[in-house]
Design a protein around this nucleic acid. Structure first.
Length: 791
DNA sequence: CTAGGGTTAG
């Protein structure tokens, strides 16, 4: 099903074609009956009925065996009556009822007609049921319907809504006469799949083919350019609007969409000009403009407009407040968020569940978990979205316990988790390396029958990969065929960080083969794989082909990967040369990569240069100060070391604490250096002493070169023994059964001494020890380590 | 027209 997300417009995957052959041609089938065109003015369809009323009419129709009723026009055929019911069910958001009726029609004499088809296709779209949609497509072919624009457009819309851009495109390409709706549908489909360039190309083609865009089409286009976020691309539509407004001025809605487009493209001034010229402004126009000022962090003007709006007798509604709160959360302005919250309460807005959720989410994004929780606890009728928003808040701040506690409470409250809830919990497990928890979530997903969409599958792949179970990650990855670029990236990066260099490259090849276009993130994974596996030449090739063959401009991150790749391999001068040649301004990632390489390959001269550049960029960053002092320590220039340390102390810079986490029986335990806060601290200390003893006997000499303090060797050794990774390992050894693997996660790089010690410990205790540090895995087994570079 | 919670990389 790869073609469902195939980016290119033209090819129609042979796999898919074979399922739907023959593709219908708009020819007239003289021998099959041509169904009558849809009734033009059925009174009943103009009226909207509630779901309850619809059900009653349904029951009545069945009871009276399609006899004319006083609700429907007297001459209504059974067909028309059923069509009416289908439409009414769809209007009431019960697409499955509509599809059941359709199935009923197929079994009875009342065969579906040209009027039925668009309605039931809409139901399929609402349910994202590609299978049923294809079935209807097949029926349309078999029944020999007249292929008018309406049927074509409905089918395209269904395929596009079910995520099958490939089928939609195929139909579009085969249409003899495309109307403005056909074009709009395609443009919208491409925009949804984030294929903006293709969408823009379609806009161009549409205008060239002489189609005059309708208002809906114009609004669609403006929304498209708002998503693209590029000022220059949206400009032509504005020009078009101005040109045409000589005859008829654009509607308030179109102008509002224009303001929204300018705001999202970051041009507040252009938005303001349009806004000021508007004679009549709707609530939405004001909201779009105010959201723009919030986005531009101009709170003063935003507040002024909010007040001015009321002076103009336009009043904000719930949706206005909703979008303001969301915008505020995305810029993380807590002060404004609190003000908006107060404003909402003061002005008696109805606190809907949606608005409450937006507030909870806003507080979470502003990292005020306490206020978020307060709001959350106050809310009545909490639905799955609020629970998920709150869990997401805990997940993003790495509050494992709180997140899982809340998850339990949610289940106790009989709220069924959905895929979004699970994605949040999984990302938490990824971060903490909590494999057992992650597996448990996976089991929950299966048990609860939660739909595995692309995002959830990607999260699962990511979780297994980041927890070091690469086989499980691959198993999930191969179970699905509907993979988007994110999922490929997750798998590629997973292989890369687990040290599978060659495999990463072959997966990349496969991705290319099935026609998924790699993006910037993909290349970060591929380059990192080359870096970790010492594939210098391959890395250089990928780096040059990403620009030449894939038209992707390497970003600073890619240069960072290259500096890391060359640096790790010891090509320090080449790495330095790369930095000098790069078009972008080198940032901390670049110099940091060079500095780390200089430390490993003991090149204090270049290292000092890198460290000084780093400190120019971020004088207060503790990590770089420490690295600089480390560089001096290599040359044993202790006075310089002391100087840096002192300046750090003076400016109040503290070292980011090294932390190591280990999951035992689904509970994540965290340790910092010299940690004695764990309930089992005594036992851990005893274990540490035993480990130290055994290490000594095995001939381990403490590598104190990682301790860059001018203290005596014995003290250095003691310090090393209390590194957080050793504490976590000791705890792992005493609390898990013999021979089971030990997995730990460290937030910084593992130091040289801990690395050497872990190798021996894996042999001494007969354990596989898997350490995940800042960006990759070290797998220790019987006294050796999987990583191939400098260790 | 604006419409609550989500994935990869950093």
């Amino acid at each position: 099903m790869e073609a469902m997300v195939t980016p290119s417009r033209t090819p129609f995957s042979p796999f898919l074609s074979s399922q739907l052959k023959p593709i219908p041609k708009p020819t007239l089938h003289l021998h099959s009956p041509i169904p009558s065109p849809p009734p033009k003015d059925a009174d009943a369809t103009a009226t909207t009925f509630t779901l309850q009323q619809t059900k009653e009419i349904h029951a009545h129709i069945i009871r009276t065996q399609f006899r004319p009723t006083n609700i429907l026009p007297a001459q209504s055929s059974p067909q028309a009556q059923l069509n009416f019911l289908i439409t009414s069910y769809i209007k009431n958001n019960t697409p499955s009822a509509a599809l059941n009726l359709y199935a009923h029609m197929r079994e009875t004499a009342a065969s579906p007609d040209n009027f039925t088809v668009p309605s039931v296709l809409k139901a399929c779209a609402q349910l994202s049921s590609l299978r049923q949609g294809m079935e209807i497509h097949g029926f349309v072919i078999k029944a020999g319907f007249h292929w008018d624009v309406f049927v074509h457009n409905s089918l395209m819309q269904m395929y596009s809504d079910c995520g099958s851009l490939g089928f939609a495109t195929k139909l579009f390409d085969e249409m003899p006469d495309r109307d403005v709706v056909s074009w709009s549908t395609m443009i919208r489909s491409y925009a949804w799949c984030k294929l903006f360039d293709e969408a823009i190309e379609l806009v161009r083609e549409m205008l060239l083919s002489g189609i005059r865009p309708s208002e809906v089409a114009i609004i669609n286009m403006l929304n498209l350019f708002a998503d693209v976020g590029e000022f220059t691309k949206g400009r032509p539509v504005h020009t078009y609007l101005i040109k045409n407004s000589a005859r008829e001025s654009p509607s308030v809605n179109a102008t509002t969409a224009l303001i929204d487009m300018y705001v999202k493209c970051g041009s507040i001034s252009a938005a303001r000009r349009v806004f000021d010229r508007m004679e009549e402004k709707s609530t939405a126009s004001w909201a779009a403009m105010i959201a723009g000022f919030i986005r531009g962090r101009d709170m003063g003007t935003a507040m002024e407009l909010l007040i001015e709006m009321r002076h103009n007798h336009v009043f904000p509604n719930e949706i206005t407040m909703l979008s303001l709160v969301i915008e505020c959360g995305s810029i993380g302005n807590l002060e404004l968020g609190k003000w908006l919250h107060a404003y909402i309460l003061r002005n008696g807005f109805k606190m809907s569940v949606a608005l409450g959720t937006a507030l909870v989410d806003m507080y979470c994004k502003c990292r005020d978990l306490w206020s978020a929780r307060e709001m959350f606890d106050l809310m009545d009728g909490k639905d799955i979205a609020v629970w998920t928003a709150m869990i997401a808040g805990y997940a993003h701040t790495n509050c494992i316990k709180e997140a899982f506690d809340l998850f339990t409470q949610m289940k106790d409250a009989n709220i069924k988790p959905n895929e979004i809830t699970m994605v949040n919990l999984l990302s938490l497990c990824s971060e903490a390396g909590a494999l057992d928890r992650g597996r448990w979530i996976h089991a929950c997903i299966d048990k609860q029958g939660i739909e595995m969409d692309v995002v959830l599958t990607t999260s699962l792949v990511d979780m297994y990969a980041k927890c070091g179970d690469i086989n499980a990650a691959y198993a999930v990855f191969t179970q699905t065929t509907d993979r988007d670029v994110c999922m490929w990236n997750a798998m590629i990066n997973g292989l890369a960080m687990n040290g599978y260099g060659e495999e990463t490259i072959s997966l990349f090849m496969e991705m290319e083969k099935v026609g998924v276009r790699p993006n910037n993130v993909t290349f970060i994974g591929v380059l990192r794989a080359c870096s970790h596996s010492g594939l210098v030449e391959e890395g250089k090739q990928f780096f040059s082909c990403m620009e030449h063959d894939y038209e992707l401009v390497p970003k600073v991150e890619h240069y960072g990967c290259m500096v890391d790749l060359l640096g790790r391999a010891g090509h320090l001068d080449e790495a330095h040369e790369m930095i000098r040649r790069m078009p972008n301004e080198p940032n901390v990632i670049i110099w940091g990569a060079l500095l780390a390489a200089c430390k490993v390959h003991k090149n204090p001269k270049l290292g000092e240069l890198a460290a000084k550049e780093l400190l120019k960029l971020e004088p207060h960053n503790s990590g770089y100060n420490i690295l600089l002092s480390n560089i001096y320590a290599i040359d044993r220039r202790w006075s310089k070391v002391a100087e840096v340390r002192k300046s750090m102390k003076d400016t109040g810079i503290k070292k980011m604490p090294g932390m190591t986490a280990i999951e035992v029986n689904g509970v994540v335990h965290e340790f910092v250096m010299g940690d004695a806060s764990h309930p089992q601290s005594k036992k851990i200390q005893a274990m540490l002493s035993e480990m130290q003893e055994k290490l000594k006997r095995a001939g381990h000499v403490a590598d104190t070169s990682g301790v860059y303090l001018n203290i005596d060797e014995e003290e250095k050794e003691t310090l090393l023994n209390y590194h957080s990774e050793k504490l976590a390992m000791a705890f792992g050894l005493i609390s898990t059964p013999p021979r089971t693997p030990i997995r730990i996660v460290k937030n910084l790089r593992v130091c040289d001494d801990c690395h050497a010690a872990t190798k021996l410990l894996s042999h001494i205790y007969g354990r596989v020890i898997i350490v995940r540090d800042r960006n990759r895995f070290h797998r220790f087994c019987e006294g050796s380590c999987s990583c191939q570079d400098y260790w």
